[in-house]
Design a protein around this nucleic acid. Structure first.
Length: 599
RNA sequence: CUCCCUGUAGCUCAAUAGGAUAGAGCAACUCCCUUCUAAGGAGUAGGUUGCAGGUUCGACUCCUGCCAGGGAGGCCA
């Protein structure tokens, strides 16, 4: 609908200009390609946040006023009268009004009912757009450094990244999700050094046994120990770097231990991903780019963009105030930066994306600014590069750090959430008649949904101070609140079906009361909300919307009988319930929240 | 020292490519289960949007300075 309104406004504006109603107005400075065309980006339309301003509104008159010598109020009335003359508009709106320089659009009751019918027909596919060719999008998310357990710090990238993937996929993009595993670099030098120490001088059988019994916890412990030892003995670092160098040279021993670390880690990570229902199309680790990085280095050198400095190779960014980035270390091993640049090149070649989204923490902002600048200097294909720099999850002391052994494992948080939801279930005042296994399953879904919703409902730019109480909030504006609303809908639908209410079919000539209309107006806007949430990279907007929708439904539920209503109300209220359940279910799916039918 | 991010009700947040009267939840206090799941609903109270300037029809939003917290800054990733 947002796009429809933009186009209507664009048409109205063109007409007004043609009729010379807007003296002095010129789009020339806005668009140099075709002077008669008004760029859609100029035409701002928003989903209204207040009922009295209609369903959608535009502040276009203010913008036009600035570009001409006509007052905003006048522009508003000129545009509305032009809008009314475009027949297409009458299909959607009962009223288009100009007030105080704004233009407000009110969806007509006819259109609302039609849309309800559409929702009932399309079920939870309402608002889905088939991917268009040329709209490929690579999303780099989760991307943990492996060889340690999945910490709370990994959660944001994983969960927001997955949500963005879902949002864009739903709105016409072909998404490629790539888990850019941190499976290369000096950290593996450290581990290889530590593990090698364990097996050095032992016979084959003992070696094998030691290696087989290693767990992810051991790797993590060794990593922490190494950094402790480093404080007393700084030369140890050379050992680790030496091992990494040997790994890059693909020495058999180094490679073997590395592979072991990799498979141990993957087992752990895949277990957690499954738990969280996170999926990737690819998990191409950094290791994959180690060789490509060297080939790329030649291209960079050929283009004269590499420079020797203190024995290492660096890249400078003369047109920006960015500090230089390290391409190659003085011992000849590749850097994160070079490998990441190689990854860009590979992705461009393989998927021809229009955009690459990096859902990576804000602590890497400099890295990405340098990376994007490098892509510009290399003059590769046009691609929009975006770093969604989410704030850190930290405690009051500061950043969580594996190196210092200061982490909270995600599993611990999940288990705690599940425990708490079990507790709540026992305390609950409603009789639920749930079996033991059902209870377990539900507690699980609520725990996971609660934590995911909690993380997603923050704007990505904010730091989150980890607090057990906050992350485990299962009441009020929270995941379980939404799930509960869905359960209510589901329960009613089940009962309606048993009572023989015909589902998915609207009777002719029905009319809705005020509160029913409010609910329907919200339902109808779902596709626009998904669209805006994707464009702004902000799943929290969808959280907001779903919370608001749930809230409206719960009010409606409390206020009016549904199954017990007189026949003429019963049917339409059941249909509204059904539509709400479709939207909620789709919303949960987009956010990656589990759907449950009882709780 | 330089650069980046954040600062909104007692607490946690929303509103962030400038828009109309800054919205929720938690905590507090009042009501509502013989009625479709009370993890719910209705209501009361709570604000100089860190501070000071500036830009303009309009600023939580943009600019400048300051304050507070966090992050990053060539051989971790």
């Amino acid at each position: 609908m947002l796009l429809v309104i933009q186009q209507l406004l664009q048409q109205a504006l063109k007409n007004a200009i043609q009729k010379q109603l807007l003296p002095g107005f010129s789009v020339a400075p806005l668009s140099n390609k075709d002077k008669r065309d008004i760029p859609l980006s100029l035409i701002s339309v928003e989903i209204s946040d207040k009922e009295e301003f209609g369903d959608y509104n535009s502040n276009l008159p203010f913008k036009i006023a600035k570009l001409s010598n006509v007052a905003p109020e006048k522009v508003g009335s000129i545009l509305t009268s032009e809008l009314r003359q475009i027949p297409q508009g009458n299909n959607f709106f009962s009223q288009i009004e100009a007030t105080k320089g704004y233009i407000n659009f009110y969806l007509s009751p006819d259109y609302l009912l039609q849309s309800l019918q559409t929702i009932l027909r399309q079920r939870d596919r309402y608002g889905y757009v088939i991917p268009k060719t040329g709209r490929n999008l690579v999303i780099d998310y989760s991307s943990p450094n492996i060889a340690k357990s999945f910490g709370i710090g990994h959660l944001r990238s994983t969960v927001i990244g997955q949500a963005l993937y879902n949002l864009y996929s739903y709105r016409g993009w072909k998404c490629i999700g790539d888990n850019h595993l941190g499976d290369w670099g000096t950290q593996f030098g450290i581990l290889i050094y530590q593990i090698n120490k364990l097996i050095e001088g032992k016979n084959r059988r003992d070696q094998k046994e030691i290696l087989q019994n290693l767990t992810i916890k051991d790797l993590e412990r060794m990593y922490v120990e190494f950094h402790k030892q480093l404080e007393e003995n700084p030369q140890l670092k050379e050992q680790a770097k030496e091992w990494f160098r040997r790994l890059e040279k693909r020495e058999k021993k180094a490679l073997q231990i590395w592979k072991l670390c990799l498979s141990l880690s993957l087992r752990e990570f895949n277990r957690i991903y499954k738990l969280l229902s996170i999926k990737f199309d690819y998990s191409i680790g950094e290791s994959f780019y180690s060789r490509k990085a060297r080939i790329l280095l030649r291209e960079i050198q050929k283009k004269g963009l590499a420079k020797k400095s203190e024995g290492a190779l660096i890249m400078e960014f003369p047109d920006s105030n960015l500090p230089p980035a390290l391409l190659l270390k003085s011992d000849g091993s590749t850097t994160y930066f070079l490998r990441d640049l190689a990854a860009v090149k590979y992705r461009l070649k393989k998927w021809h994306p229009k955009m690459i989204i990096y859902e990576v923490g804000a602590d890497q902002s400099l890295h990405f600014r340098q990376l994007f600048q490098a892509v510009k200097l290399l003059k590769w294909d046009e691609v929009k590069l975006v770093h969604i720099a989410h704030g850190l999850i930290r405690d009051k002391e500061g950043k969580f750090s594996t190196r210092l052994g200061r982490t909270i494992s995600l599993e611990k948080v999940l288990n705690e959430a599940i425990r708490k939801s079990e507790e709540l279930m026992e305390k609950s005042e409603t009789k639920r008649r749930l079996s033991c296994s059902e209870k377990k399953e539900i507690a699980h879904a609520i725990g996971i949904g609660g934590i995911k919703y909690n993380i997603l409902s923050y704007h990505y730019s904010k730091d989150i101070i980890f607090d057990w109480e906050k992350i485990l909030n299962l009441q009020g504006n929270s995941g379980p609140y939404l799930q509960y609303t869905y359960v209510r809908c589901y329960s009613i639908i089940q009962k309606a079906q048993k009572e023989g209410v015909r589902l998915g079919k609207l009777k002719k000539g029905i009319s809705l009361n005020k509160d029913e209309i409010v609910l329907l107006r919200t339902l109808v806007k779902f596709p626009d909300v998904v669209q805006v949430a994707a464009e702004k990279f902000a799943p929290n907007l969808l959280c907001d919307y779903l919370y608001n929708l749930s809230s409206l439904y719960n009010y409606f539920y409390q206020q009016f009988p549904i199954l017990k209503a007189p026949e003429e109300d019963r049917s339409k209220r059941v249909q509204l319930t059904l539509a709400t359940s479709y939207i909620l279910r789709r919303g949960f799916y987009l956010l990656g929240m589990p759907v449950i039918t009882k709780m």
